[in-house]
């Protein structure tokens, strides 16, 4: 590629990311609104201070925007989960608790965005399939972490890494939005304590 095209591409990518983050900010500020997912694209853009013409330079439609938002927040979740998957022996319950709290904090910061993405996926087959692929990226990363842990003896060697990662990833994905996000501080503490126990028992407890 000609070198003069490269700065243009990175500038375009940066503008696209800025737009994503501004829309995400609006979704977070309005997370408690009634039916935030039903909001029209023009309302979102107006609240984010983005001109329609600028938006349509970077995104085909609202579906593509939500797709990109989903990809961005899941990238953040994968980064945060890296702390969990890098835990070294001996892994303790407090280690796992800290990992779960970091995930919870990451979800809380993006709960409005996640909710909008999940709501849209519930109503659109294409978005639903792409959302599944995002969760599958998490499954793949968790699977790799389980395999690595099995090699070092940190994680039970008898586990089917892919199958176990599938169940745990979907448990956390759904439980964070359905259970933890609506919970008060006391209920959150109990939920995270239990999630810690379940994950620790599943992966790290002696066979």
């Amino acid at each position: 590629m000609p070198t003069h095209a490269q700065p243009h591409r990175s500038c375009r990518a940066r503008r696209r990311l800025e737009m994503l983050l501004r829309v995400s900010d609006v979704l977070e500020q309005t997370a408690d609104d009634v039916d935030p997912a039903g909001r029209q694209i023009d309302d979102l853009l107006a609240a984010a201070g983005i001109a329609r013409s600028t938006f349509y330079l970077h995104f085909r439609d609202k579906a593509e925007l939500l797709d990109a938002l989903g990809e961005h927040v899941f990238g953040e979740f994968l980064d945060v989960a890296g702390f969990w998957w890098a835990l070294e022996a001996p892994v303790t319950r407090p280690d796992v608790r800290e990992a779960m709290e970091r995930l919870c904090d990451a979800y809380r910061v993006r709960r409005g965005t996640v909710s909008a993405v999940v709501d849209a996926a519930a109503n659109d087959t294409g978005l639903r399939d792409r959302y599944r692929r995002l969760v599958h990226e998490v499954v793949g990363a968790l699977e790799a972490a389980i395999v690595a842990g099995q090699l070092t003896g940190t994680i039970d060697a008898s586990l089917d890494a892919r199958g176990t990662a599938t169940w745990i990833a979907w448990m956390i994905e759904r439980g964070m939005t359905q259970l933890v996000m609506p919970a008060d501080a006391n209920a959150t503490d109990r939920l995270l304590q239990t999630l810690t126990d379940l994950v620790w028992n599943a992966l790290y407890a002696p066979a």
Partner: peptide, 18 residues
Amino acid sequence: TLLPHEAASWIMWMYERT
């Protein structure tokens, strides 16, 4: 040591989603 209501909740949503 498990909190039964919370454990049941996590497990139920795990099954629903998977």
